[in-house]
Amino acid sequence: MNHDNEHPGGTHDMKTDKMNSGGLSRRLLMSLGILGVAGAVAGLGTWAQFTDSTSANHSISTGTVDVELGSSGTINRFTQDATDVAAGDTITRAVDLNLDGSLDLSNVSLTVAGGVAGLNDSTNGLNLKVEECSTAWPETGTNPYTYGACTGTRQDVLADGDILQSNSTLSLSSLSHGTRHLLFTWTLPSGAAQPAQGGLTGAYTYTFAAAQRAGTNR
């Protein structure tokens, strides 16, 4: 506050250096005026109190939940459709499930929707199972692809069951950041009642949903 009040006076002094002209009286008047202003400002500033502040900085960032399928090729054979499937056939496709988020997960689930009534039939329709291998599944051939035995550790991720699934938990080897090598196997039962399953095309949507780990103290 003081500094601000002094400033106009200083500026004024620099401007007028003629001592023996009207400058002196003008300076006097100006000074009076400035004193008046200072008095008024001081009058306004009567809330002054002794205070002191101290501070500390803190940073917080949130993590991410991100689940992705392999882009294409050997890490995503979902893009290869299966055609002319006959009763008793088996279809296999490998796909990588990438857990890309920074947060560990509490759950990854699979929902399979779509298809057609005949193929969705829980007795005679398609069955699905999902396995995981700790290393990439050894792939041979071109469409149709076949896969050798897992050379690492194999485990069942989704037990053999109906193709339609609703938020079925996948029993993955780990819910932490990283890649899970999955192998999907579909079978059309050999006992399928042929007329009902013949000439059908089912388009299915596979949705993988990931949920964060439970809250904790950090």
């Binding site: 002794f50 500390a56 917080i60």
Partner: peptide, 22 residues
């Protein structure tokens, strides 16, 4: 827990200031 997906991957850095008055 009501913080939805819009809160993923965010950061905040803040000063906490404590002011004492006579």
């Amino acid at each position: 827990t009501s913080a939805g997906n819009a809160f993923q991957g965010l950061a905040t850095s803040f000063d906490m200031s404590f002011t004492a008055t006579q």
